[in-house]
């Protein structure tokens, strides 16, 4: 009854800031960052990454209310870097890791396809009419030339 519309869980409101940083006034090198329209998927991952950094003293996140589509993450560092920078570094590291994982997955998928048996090219049949309806390999591999700059 009090739940918001489902699409508001992931679509930013007009003029809404996706990220708001509030620096803590009582604790040194600490900040509370409010991230709108995101949930545990991002929060927990970033929190875990922050905790793995030696210069981060504290990192914790919470979704204050299940009906409100945002989370806050608190970061305290040892002073060598700002909390914002710690968060940014954590994200960059994670992006690198996901990118690395993407390459590995691609390679594994290619292996399995080469093995023949069950790859996406098996998706033939009446509907497919020879063209792979699942776009296995096709869809995402195109336009991924992200080194084009």
């Amino acid at each position: 009854m009090n739940a918001i519309n489902r699409h508001e869980l992931f679509v930013l409101d007009e003029g809404e800031n996706p990220v708001e940083v509030t620096e803590d006034t009582k604790i040194p090198n600490a900040a509370t960052i409010r991230i709108a329209k995101q949930d545990h998927t991002l929060g927990n991952m970033v929190r875990a990454q922050l905790l793995s950094m030696p210069s981060v003293l504290f990192a914790g996140y919470k979704v204050p209310h299940p009906l409100q589509p945002y989370f806050i993450i608190k970061v305290q560092t040892d002073g060598t870097i700002t909390p914002q920078f710690a968060l940014e570094t954590a994200c960059n590291d994670l992006i690198k890791m996901v990118g690395d994982l993407e390459v590995k997955f691609k390679r594994e998928f290619a292996f399995k396809d080469a093995d023949g048996a069950t790859g996406s090219n098996a998706a033939g049949g009446p509907t497919a009419g020879g063209d792979d309806p699942y776009g296995g390999g096709g869809g995402w591999s195109e336009g991924k030339d992200y080194l084009d700059f």
Binding site: T41, V46, L87, Y134, W140
Partner: peptide, 20 residues
């Protein structure tokens, strides 16, 4: 396809992080 789901999932994670 399963492959597409995984690859898109990873891309989506990157998007979320990059947006942050």
């Amino acid at each position: 396809g399963a492959q597409e789901v995984i690859m898109k999932g990873l891309a989506e994670l990157q998007t979320k992080l990059a947006n942050l």
